[in-house]
Amino acid sequence: NQESVVAAVLIPINTALTVGMMTTRVVSPTGIPAEDIPRLISMQVNQVVPMGTTLMPDMVKGYAP
């Protein structure tokens, strides 16, 4: 099972992602793959992401799977 990126904290809208904001977990449905965390650093979320929420591609500005 592939791990997906999950919010480790509440991430406010338009916040640039940092390593500490993200964790990984096997979830269903799957979100952004864990191995993409290095690509996500400094990208901004386009909505509020509650802690424990799986990051989906459409939540991150400029992210393309």
Rank of each mutant, 00 (worst) to 15 (best):
V60P: 01
I13W: 11
Q44I: 08
V60S: 01
E3R: 13
E3K: 11
L55P: 00
T23I: 08
P38W: 08
V6H: 03
I32N: 02
M43Q: 11
G52T: 04
G31W: 02
Q44W: 09
R39I: 08
M43K: 07
I37K: 11
T54F: 03
Q2R: 12
G31C: 03
I11T: 00
P33I: 08
V5S: 02
Q47S: 09
D58R: 12
V49M: 03
V6N: 02
I13G: 08
L55G: 00
T54K: 04
T18Y: 06
N1P: 10
R39A: 15
V19T: 09
V26Q: 14
S28L: 08
V19C: 04
E35S: 13
I11L: 09
P12S: 08
M21Q: 09
M21I: 04
N14W: 12
I11E: 00
T18G: 05
P33F: 13
I13P: 14
V26L: 12
Y63C: 03
V26R: 14
Y63T: 03
N14A: 08
I37T: 07
P38D: 15
I37H: 04
A64G: 14
I11P: 00
A64N: 13
S42E: 08
S28F: 15
V27P: 01
V26D: 08
M22F: 09
M51A: 11
M59Q: 06
P29W: 04
M22I: 05
P65W: 03
A16T: 14
V48M: 12
I41Y: 06
S42I: 03
V27K: 07
I41P: 02
I41M: 07
I32E: 01
G31L: 02
A7V: 04
I32S: 01
A7E: 00
M56I: 07
L17Q: 01
P29V: 05
T54D: 01
N46D: 07
I11M: 06
Q44L: 12
S4R: 02
G20V: 07
G31E: 02
I37S: 05
N14K: 09
M51I: 11
V9C: 03
L55D: 00
V5E: 00
V9Y: 09
T30L: 13
K61I: 12
P50R: 08
V5N: 01
V19L: 10
R25M: 04
A8R: 09
T24L: 15
E35G: 15
L55Q: 00
A64H: 11
S42D: 15
D36M: 15
L55M: 10
L10Y: 13
I37R: 10
M51C: 03
M43D: 04
P65A: 13
P12H: 13
R39H: 12
L17E: 00
Q2A: 15
Q47W: 04
P57I: 05
P29A: 12
N46M: 09
Q44K: 10
S28T: 15
E3Q: 14
G62I: 04
S42K: 13
V49E: 00
L17V: 03
M21V: 08
P38Q: 11
I13M: 12
V60R: 00
L55I: 09
T54P: 05
N46C: 03
V48K: 15
I11W: 01
L17S: 00
I37L: 07
S4C: 03
L10F: 12
M21D: 06
N46K: 06
M59I: 03
S28P: 02
V60M: 06
A64Y: 08
V19S: 13
V48W: 13
M56P: 00
Q2G: 15
N14R: 11
G62H: 08
E35N: 14
R39Y: 12
V45F: 01
N1H: 11
L55S: 01
A8K: 10
G52Y: 06
L17C: 01
N46F: 04
A34P: 10
M22L: 12
P38L: 11
P38E: 09
G52K: 06
Q2P: 10
T23W: 12
P33E: 04
P33W: 07
P38H: 15
L10C: 04
M21P: 01
I13S: 08
D36I: 09
V26W: 09
R25C: 04
P50A: 13
I11D: 00
V26I: 15
L17I: 05
V19P: 09
Q44C: 03
V5L: 05
R25E: 08
D58W: 06
D58S: 14
V49P: 00
E35W: 09
I37C: 03
I41R: 08
V49L: 13
M56L: 07
T24I: 07
Q2Y: 15
S4D: 01
P29M: 04
P50C: 04
I41S: 04
I37Q: 14
M21L: 06
S4E: 00
A7S: 11
V5Y: 01
L55N: 01
Q2M: 11
G20Q: 15
T54H: 02
D58L: 11
V60Q: 01
L40F: 02
S42G: 12
I32C: 03
I13Q: 14
V19R: 10
E3V: 12
Y63I: 09
N46P: 02
Y63S: 03
V19G: 13
M59D: 03
R25T: 06
L40S: 00
P57R: 11
V19E: 14
P38M: 14
L17A: 00
N14Y: 12
I11S: 00
M56G: 06
Q2N: 10
R25A: 12
T15M: 13
S28D: 13
K61L: 11
T23H: 10
V48C: 03
G20S: 12
A16D: 06
Q44R: 14
M22E: 01
S4T: 05
M59V: 05
T15K: 12
A8Y: 06
V60I: 12
T24P: 05
V26M: 15
A34Q: 07
T54Y: 03
I13N: 06
L10A: 15
V26T: 08
V5H: 00
Q44N: 13
R25P: 01
P12C: 03
S28M: 11
V45H: 01
P50L: 09
G52I: 02
M56C: 03
T18A: 12
I32P: 00
A64Q: 08
L55C: 02
V49Y: 01
V49K: 01
Q47G: 05
A8M: 12
T53W: 07
S28C: 04
T54I: 08
P57S: 11
P29I: 07
A34L: 04
G52R: 04
E3A: 11
V45E: 01
P12Y: 06
M21K: 03
I37Y: 09
R25Q: 09
N14C: 04
I32A: 02
G31M: 04
A8V: 09
V45N: 02
L17F: 02
N1K: 13
T24S: 12
V5W: 02
Y63N: 04
A8S: 12
L55F: 13
T30D: 08
T24K: 15
V19I: 09
Q47K: 13
M43E: 10
I37A: 13
A7Q: 01
Q2C: 02
P29E: 06
T54M: 07
M51R: 15
A16F: 12
M59R: 02
V45C: 03
T53I: 07
L55E: 01
M22C: 03
P29N: 05
M22S: 01
L10D: 06
V9P: 00
M22Y: 02
L40T: 02
V6C: 03
S42M: 06
V45G: 00
D58C: 04
V45M: 05
A34E: 05
A64D: 13
G62D: 13
Q47A: 14
D58M: 14
T30N: 14
Y63G: 04
V60E: 01
M51S: 07
V6Y: 03
P38Y: 06
A8Q: 10
V9E: 08
V9W: 04
L55K: 01
T18S: 06
I32Y: 03
V48T: 13
V49S: 02
G20P: 10
Q47R: 12
T18V: 08
I32H: 01
V9M: 13
L17G: 00
M51G: 13
G20F: 08
P57Y: 08
G52W: 08
A64V: 15
V49D: 01
V6I: 13
T23C: 03
A16E: 09
G52C: 03
E3T: 12
I37N: 02
L40E: 00
N14I: 02
E3H: 12
V5K: 01
I32R: 00
V6P: 00
V5M: 02
V6M: 12
Q44G: 06
S42Q: 15
R39Q: 07
P50N: 12
M59F: 11
I41D: 03
D36P: 00
V60A: 01
M59P: 01
V26Y: 12
M59E: 01
V60K: 01
L55A: 01
V48Q: 14
V5P: 01
Q47P: 00
I13F: 12
R25D: 11
V19A: 15
A34H: 06
M51D: 07
A16R: 14
M21S: 05
V27R: 09
S28Q: 15
A7M: 03
M22K: 01
S28A: 04
Q2I: 12
A7D: 00
V26G: 09
P57D: 06
T23D: 05
A7H: 01
